[in-house]
Amino acid sequence: MDVKVISKYRLGEAMELGFPFSIFRWTHAPGDLPEVLFRRNFWKLVYVIAGKGSIEINGHEYLLSPGTVLFIHPESETRYRLAETKLEICNLCFLPELIEDRLEKLRDPSGFFSILRPGSSAPPEAVRNLCVQSAPPSVAGLFRKMEREYRSGRNNCREMLRTQLIELLLLLERNACRLRNRRRSGGPEPARTVLAYLAEHLESGVDYEELTLLTGLSRSRLGVLFRRETGENISSAYLRLRLKRAKELLAGEEEFSIPELCRRCGFRDISYFYRRFRREFGTSPRRTAGR
């Protein structure tokens, strides 16, 4: 199959005028895609906004759905495959020289950033790790911020984009490390990871974005797997753990006021706490404390 090389100079004036960065949206439609492989002389980040399909990268196929992020190495040969729906994506293209001075300051125990350095190659494992599925909402939000900043032309716009690009790469590096570790170890069941997280955050509340980062799963997929493994949803499990903790504190030697107990177990509404406690244990918190 033919390979078509896309030059950085086709990406608009920004890439031509000494600022090797561009971000723009594009929509692929079934039937519009040529039967060729594409290769670039720049790096490309792709965020899927809407639609479904797949992309072939160096002979490996990756499914695409809203929330998927791909980090495409210049040496990689790619082509999209669509079935029946359009695919709306956000393309972020850049050259590493844009952030070269900042890359040198980053700790890189995983080697994620080493492939951005001049003369580096892309080993197969690195390419697989760059394909991050089900990115957390923070990644989508950062893409939108960078789109707005790029169009704004405000003072220090270029410096802001450099900073945001580093932030985006750091988020993707963390995701890639988690995915790699899960593949190597077989990974703990999502339910165990979630339950351990809930037990450590009884007072502060659940940050679902953090859970998606910990598990490498989207919120909806995580919810499905958690229910399959435990028979309950995450919010029900969290409520049960908080009530269990409240009962343990009430039965202990240390005395707590009800407002303090609610604070320690993450309840903001005392009336709600009373109702849920009675429903769970068949008695009131005060009677439990008096036993």
Rank of each mutant, 00 (worst) to 15 (best):
K8T: 12
F42G: 04
L98A: 05
V127W: 02
G187L: 04
G59H: 10
T288H: 08
I55H: 06
R162P: 04
T215Y: 02
V127F: 02
P285Y: 03
T68H: 05
R162A: 02
L239V: 09
D108F: 07
R154N: 11
E84Q: 13
Y272V: 12
H201C: 08
F42E: 06
G252S: 09
E255K: 13
E77D: 10
S22Q: 13
L70M: 08
C90P: 04
S120V: 00
C157G: 09
R154F: 08
V206T: 11
V36P: 02
S121T: 13
K145V: 04
L214Y: 06
R102E: 14
L213D: 05
C90I: 09
G223S: 15
S134M: 12
I270H: 11
K145C: 03
V46C: 10
V206F: 07
I23G: 04
F226G: 07
V127P: 00
F21W: 02
L241G: 02
N41A: 03
V36Q: 09
G111S: 01
A29C: 12
I49W: 07
N41F: 01
R144V: 00
E167H: 14
E147F: 00
L33N: 10
Y80D: 11
P20T: 00
S134I: 05
L213E: 12
N175A: 15
L103D: 08
Y150D: 04
R117K: 15
N58I: 01
T230V: 11
E147C: 00
G18F: 02
G12S: 05
Y274W: 10
R184T: 09
L64R: 01
P190R: 00
P124N: 06
I55N: 03
W43I: 00
R158S: 06
L170G: 07
P74A: 10
A14N: 14
L225C: 10
P34R: 01
R291D: 08
T230P: 02
C262Y: 03
R107Q: 13
N233D: 15
P137V: 03
R144L: 02
G31C: 08
D207A: 14
Y208T: 07
R219D: 13
M146A: 05
M146I: 00
T215K: 11
R79M: 11
R10E: 13
Y150G: 00
L168I: 03
L225W: 07
Y208N: 03
N233Y: 08
G223I: 09
G252R: 05
E167Q: 14
L171S: 04
F143I: 01
R81F: 11
P137C: 01
T288A: 15
R242C: 08
R25E: 15
L198E: 02
T27Y: 06
M1I: 11
F38D: 08
S138A: 13
R264K: 15
R219T: 12
L239S: 06
E210A: 15
G223T: 14
R268E: 11
I258P: 00
L106M: 07
T78A: 08
A196Q: 10
N129H: 04
R40G: 11
R242S: 10
T215M: 10
R227Y: 14
E97G: 05
M146H: 00
T68F: 01
L261N: 03
P109G: 05
E280M: 10
V194F: 12
L198W: 06
I55P: 01
A251N: 15
L179W: 01
S220L: 14
L179D: 06
R264C: 06
K8L: 09
R276I: 06
A140N: 09
